[in-house]
C-alpha cells in the first residue's frame, strides 16, 4: 500500500511540474506585457524600467528557474496589474466559482440520476428516448450559447430571473443550469449505461432467478452498484466545472475565477494567468490523487498495478 501511495504521489508531482512548464511558456506566447502596459508613446527608458521592475528583462530560463523556486515556496507571484499577491486575488474569487460549480452539479444530479435510472430500467421506452436526447444535447450544445439563450428567454422576455451578476439566490439559477447542462448529459448517459450493465450482470440474473420482485431488484441490487462509478465521476465532474466555467462566468458576469482569468489574459497579466491555471490544475490533480487513493483503499486489486 505504501509503495502504491508513493507512486501515485510521484505521478501527481510530475503532472504539476508539467503543468508549470506548459503554463509558463504558453502564457509567454500570448503577448508582450511591456508593449501592452506601457503607454504607446512612452520613451524607451520607461519600457526598460518597467521590464526590469517586473523581472521581464531576464532570459526566459532564468525567469523560469526563479518561478519554480517561488512556487516551491508557495509563492505564486504578484499580479502585474494589481501589484499584490496573486493568491490573495484568487482567494477573493474562489468562493463564487465553487458556488457556481456546486450549483451546476446539484442541478445536473437532480435531473440526470433519476432520468438515467428510469431510462436504464426501461430501455427503449419513452423515458429512455428523452434521456438519450438530453444526453446528446448536453454533450453537443455549447454552454455559453445555451447561457445566452436562457438570458434572452428567462431574463429579457419573461423577466423571471436576473440576466447577470451575483446579487441574490435567484442569480445562481441561469448560470448553474447553463454550466451544469453538459455534465447533465454525461451523467444521464453514464447512469443509464451503468444500469444496463448491472442488469446484464450475473448476480442480477441470480437474484432474478431466485424470484426477487422487480422493484426490490432495482432498489436493493441495481442502485448500490450504480452508485460506486457515479461517485467517482461526480468528483471529476466537479473539478471540470471549476475549471470550465470561464465562458459561463463571462456570459453571466459572475465574479469568479473564470472572469478573473479572462481579464488576466486580456491584460497579459502573466503571473495572474499562471497562478489561476496552476491553482485549478492543483485542485484537479489533488482530486484525482484522492480518487486514486480511495480506489486503492476500496479495491485491493489496484494496489499492485
Amino acid at each position: 500500500m505504501l509503495s502504491y501511495v508513493a507512486s501515485k504521489l510521484l505521478e501527481s508531482l510530475a503532472l504539476i511540474v508539467g503543468v508549470l512548464v506548459l503554463v509558463f511558456f504558453l502564457v509567454r506566447l500570448t503577448g508582450d506585457p511591456v508593449a501592452l502596459m506601457v503607454p504607446k508613446d512612452a520613451p524607451q527608458e520607461q519600457r526598460e524600467t518597467f521590464a526590469r521592475m517586473m523581472g521581464l528583462d531576464q532570459p526566459l530560463p532564468v525567469q523560469f528557474a526563479q518561478y519554480l523556486a517561488d512556487v516551491a515556496r508557495g509563492d505564486l507571484g504578484d499580479s502585474l496589474r494589481q501589484r499584490r499577491p496573486t493568491l490573495d486575488i484568487i482567494r477573493e474569487r474562489l468562493w463564487p466559482t465553487v458556488q457556481l460549480a456546486l450549483g451546476a452539479l446539484a442541478f445536473a444530479m437532480t435531473i440526470a440520476i433519476p432520468l438515467g435510472l428510469a431510462a436504464g430500467l426501461n430501455p427503449d421506452g419513452w423515458i429512455d428516448r428523452i434521456a438519450r436526447t438530453v444526453g446528446l444535447a448536453g454533450q453537443t450544445i455549447p454552454n455559453y450559447w445555451l447561457g445566452m439563450l436562457l438570458i434572452v428567454f428567462f431574463a429579457v422576455e419573461l423577466r423571471w430571473l436576473p440576466a447577470f451578476g451575483r446579487d441574490t439566490a435567484a442569480s445562481l439559477v441561469l448560470p448553474a443550469v447553463s454550466l451544469g447542462f453538459a455534465g447533465l448529459g454525461q451523467l444521464v448517459r453514464l447512469t443509464r449505461s451503468t444500469v444496463l450493465d448491472v442488469r446484464r450482470s450475473d448476480y442480477l440474473r441470480t437474484a432474478r432467478s431466485k424470484g426477487v420482485h422487480a422493484t426490490g431488484l432495482a432498489w436493493r441490487h441495481v442502485l448500490p452498484n450504480v452508485a460506486v462509478p457515479l461517485i467517482s465521476v461526480l468528483g471529476i465532474q466537479f473539478t471540470y466545472l471549476l475549471g470550465g466555467s470561464v465562458y459561463i462566468e463571462s456570459v453571466f458576469a459572475w465574479p469568479g475565477l473564470g472572469t478573473l482569468l479572462e481579464g488576466a489574459i486580456r491584460d497579459t497579466d502573466f503571473p495572474l494567468v499562471q497562478a489561476i491555471t496552476v491553482f485549478i490544475a492543483f485542485i484537479a490533480i489533488s482530486v484525482h490523487l484522492l480518487t486514486d487513493l480511495l480506489y486503492g483503499w476500496v479495491d485491493p486489486r489496484l494496489r499492485v498495478a
Binding site: A155, A163, P255
Partner: peptide
Amino acid sequence: VISDPSTRVAAIQT
C-alpha cells in the same frame, strides 16, 4: 463589471 457585450445589452433591457 460585465465583460460580455451582449450581456451588457441584456442588462439594460431588463
